[in-house]
Simulated scan of single mutants.
Amino acid sequence: MQRNLCGRRLGSCLMKARSRLSKVDVAKAAFLVMEVLVIPLVFFGGCGRNSDYYGMARIPPLVEQWRADVETYAEEFGVSGYVELLLAIIAQESGGDVEVTADIMQCSASAGLPGNSISDPVESIRQGVYYFSTLLGRRADGEVDMDAVIQSYNFGGGYQDFVAEVYGGVHSEEAARAFSEKMCDRYGYSFYGDVLYVEHVKSFLGGSEKQEGYGSMEECIREYTGVPYVYGGNGKYGIDCSALTQKIYKSIGITLPRTAQGQYDAVRHIPDYEARPGDLVFFTGTYESGTHITHVGLYVGNDRFFHASSGDGCCCFAYLSEAYYSEHMAGFGRP
């Protein structure tokens, strides 16, 4: 249970969303308006961004060490929703190992430089994230799909032109092979790029795995989105964090203890990179409770979790990468 998460004044999710509109720039405001007016039709009161890839990247420590730098530049270049994908790209390109190459995102060519010219890994991340942000433009315009964007990180932006013209904007292995052959013929190469680059990058993403019975959990999430937060509550009139996760798990036939600490004690603790939609995510120190664990939510992938929040005054979505939650996060758990 959670008494005063974030120490913010209680209020409805919609009021919270409206108040944010005055605090963001015009572009972000436009996106928030779309969220407030459209998304509540499906998830009333839901607060969150969208991305095509869900789940935290399953990456080794050599890649994880660069997360903060990726997050910094992702925010700078307007691609914060793609941090996990960018980390997966690093994992594929270099494994994050500067002993192999300082150009850990293999992006020197995108800056007009010879291969592996970038000698600072942080500069490689800056350039790589910037390059990725430029590739997203045609995706935003609906000309190509997301897989074409990923493949073009390896092939270059010309691949997007090729896919848009020949394959209706839809990436496939066939399209990748055709483009590779075209470039080999044009420049006399024996091979060009990695035709299975999308599959290789996706192998580092946990988006395809979900907790068994997750569909029933999603129905419960829809049912409770926007329900008021009430400390000690256990129903539609109002509910707190541990009662919410207890109800969600009950929907798939699993009984959890009533309190956040009790749930933490009852589950298997897992590393962040193994987290998948449907896992529990725990927090500590969110209020004075006399227990180590003071808050719990349900991880839904792509950095998001669903919880009963006293700060927002209702059951809604939030992001683990937000400063408050990352500071208080205690880890993931799975029954």
Rank of each mutant, 00 (worst) to 15 (best):
R3D: 05
R18H: 07
L21V: 07
D25L: 10
V26C: 07
M34A: 15
E35R: 15
I39E: 13
F44I: 07
G46V: 08
C47N: 14
G48F: 03
R49C: 02
R49Q: 12
Y53C: 06
G55N: 08
M56N: 09
I59N: 01
E64S: 15
G81Q: 13
G81Y: 04
V83F: 08
L87A: 09
I89G: 07
I89Y: 00
A91V: 03
S94E: 01
G95V: 07
G96C: 04
S108N: 04
S108Q: 03
A111S: 15
G112L: 08
L113M: 15
V122N: 06
E123T: 12
I125L: 11
G128R: 14
R139L: 14
D141G: 11
D141V: 06
G142V: 12
E143Y: 02
D145F: 02
M146I: 14
I150L: 06
Q151L: 04
V163Q: 09
V170W: 01
E173W: 04
A176Y: 00
F179L: 00
E181F: 00
F191T: 14
Y192K: 09
D194H: 14
D194V: 06
S203M: 12
E209C: 07
E209Q: 11
G213A: 10
G213Q: 08
M217T: 01
E218H: 06
E218Y: 02
E218G: 05
C220P: 07
G226S: 14
V227N: 01
V227C: 02
P228R: 15
Y229T: 04
V230H: 14
G232Y: 05
G232L: 11
G233P: 13
K236F: 01
I239S: 13
C241R: 05
S242C: 03
L244T: 07
T245H: 09
K247H: 13
L256S: 12
P257W: 00
R258F: 02
Q263R: 09
Y264K: 11
R268V: 13
R268Q: 13
R268P: 00
H269D: 09
I270P: 03
Y273Q: 09
S289R: 12
S289T: 09
T291H: 05
T291F: 01
I293V: 09
T294A: 03
T294K: 03
N302F: 02
H307G: 07
S310P: 12
D312N: 10
G313Q: 03
C315R: 14
F317W: 14
L320K: 12
L320C: 09
E327V: 05
F332Y: 15
P335V: 06
